[in-house]
Design a binder for these strands. Sequence first.
DNA 1: CTGAAAGCGCTAACAA
DNA 2: TTGTTAGCGCTTTCAG
Lengths: 336, 336
Amino acid sequence: MQRVTIKDIAKKLNLSKSSVSRAFNDKYDIKKETRDLILKTAEEMGYFPNPIARKLSQSKTYNIGVVVPEFINDFHAEIIIGIHRILNPKGYQVLVMQSDSTPEMELKNVQTLIQNMVDGLIIAPSSDSDNLDYYLKQMNAGTPMVFVNRIAETFEAPKVVCDNKKWSFFATEHLIREKYKKIYHLSGNKNISVARDRIKGFKQALRKHQFAEEDFKVIETGLLASGGVEVVEELLYRQDLPDAFFCINDLVAMGVIRTLKKNNIRVPEEIGVIGFSETQMAKLTSPQLSSVQQPTYEMGEKAAELLIRHMNDEEVKEATIVLNGKLNIRESSKRS
Amino acid sequence: MQRVTIKDIAKKLNLSKSSVSRAFNDKYDIKKETRDLILKTAEEMGYFPNPIARKLSQSKTYNIGVVVPEFINDFHAEIIIGIHRILNPKGYQVLVMQSDSTPEMELKNVQTLIQNMVDGLIIAPSSDSDNLDYYLKQMNAGTPMVFVNRIAETFEAPKVVCDNKKWSFFATEHLIREKYKKIYHLSGNKNISVARDRIKGFKQALRKHQFAEEDFKVIETGLLASGGVEVVEELLYRQDLPDAFFCINDLVAMGVIRTLKKNNIRVPEEIGVIGFSETQMAKLTSPQLSSVQQPTYEMGEKAAELLIRHMNDEEVKEATIVLNGKLNIRESSKRS
DNA sequence: CTGAAAGCGCTAACAA
DNA sequence: TTGTTAGCGCTTTCAG
């Protein structure tokens, strides 16, 4: 069964291909009746425009590339859904690739996508310091790009971020208000600006509440549950347990809680725990996990909108959108 | 900066476009030296083939559509990753859409993808009884399709499924061996063949171990944690708690465990719980959740391989691949 | 082994 | 308002 083309319709109606084409792109002049006629017979003949042909002649692919560190986690999955929500209705197709959280793979994915001629890119970088030169070069060469989440503040590009420092501050302050006296921050990886910002917020809160500087303890754990497990085991061994953990993410927090409970330490009575980047899991565990929720869907949506504006040549080179988080206080951090 | 085309290379080397094209598609005759020369200068000039042009002239898009119920869960995310693993290296791009678990949206997505001229489709249906006529029609019209997971056994199409009945049987038998005497099965939704198969396995195990037929209790809960919560609350109210729950998935199991613990019922000592479709969460909770793990990545890989064979016109119309699961026994179901 | 030329299906100047 | 025509960049048949 051959696909119907504009040529077939033109022949059938004794019109030219151009007229048919025009009927489908209402930016050109065409008499209303002929257009209606064309649209009607097109419908009858089961015609659908061939997107590839259109892409070739318009030299526009309507493809948008998205690169995320990984898509098995709620955070990035939700960002991707947000992106879809904006882009799909506008006729764009979204090509998602994951970088396995490595800058090398990320670069490779971006290159692949550019070679496949995406019209624009949304990148959720794995770190904020790698590949920047390359990205800058590509942007100057005319590839519209928008960055999400982990990206250096100083990098001059359209970006969508959360106010990590602020919400880290609130999370820490919440622990302080709950009368936790010795609070450790389990930080993911200091190469990531997001983590650095959270450290800043953490320290700022402690400082505000007159904690001694020597108590500003930050431990790097990576982003996996195992990181939380190991830290607690280590601290137990060294008999240096704090009475609260503020964790870089929910996974680490879960690792912490598990290990504490295994050692018969009660959460939140003896030790409070709070996570970040709320996951579905937070509500399902016992104790339910307190966590800072980020507006993930909105991050994706804003990034997509920014990209569209960027592709339309609006001047958004340095537009930065900062979104707000939200502190969900549940059982794991409530002593009162 | 204009993109380099084969024409530019041809001009530079005083060759014809065809030769340059041939150099990149080694199915045609071309002298080795000229080919090497072309490849070398192409490299120097920073040439990349324009995929759109190639697609148009080959009338092949190298796009594969994938429709899943949703991608915020490990199960489907892992299937998608499996698909990527096979398809990306072969130069295919994967377009993923989610149906929000409704047949209507699923149909719409499939139609959109077909209009966008994907070369083939992998569908993880939201139910196994909807849209089948349409799919059959499309397949007969020449669109290669492969189905994954929730799909009726009798539907004649290439498909990749798990042996749900078998692993449901093993899960139930495991509970029996742990001396649980009154086992309820929390089933998702009987419209889904996967759920029906698990019910079969459940009953088969009870039968084998001489449980009374009146004890074959199956309760529909949907697929969310809230379903588990509500059932336990209801059963508590009616004072009809079993001593073990075999749950359709980990989310429901988590809801069950949470609610039991809230009511000071110990898991697994008083009540055992086991999930299905292992999630990352299973290892992170306390007690750690026993669950049947399905080979999700492999399901995606097999589906992609099947699709490729199908697109190459191998006769695989009715090929069904049945994969094996695995029972991960953890704390939530071990009384001994 | 290489070149010329047609064509994939559509868009977009330009003419009429 | 409509038709003619020349592409978009590549593949592929046919000649040479």
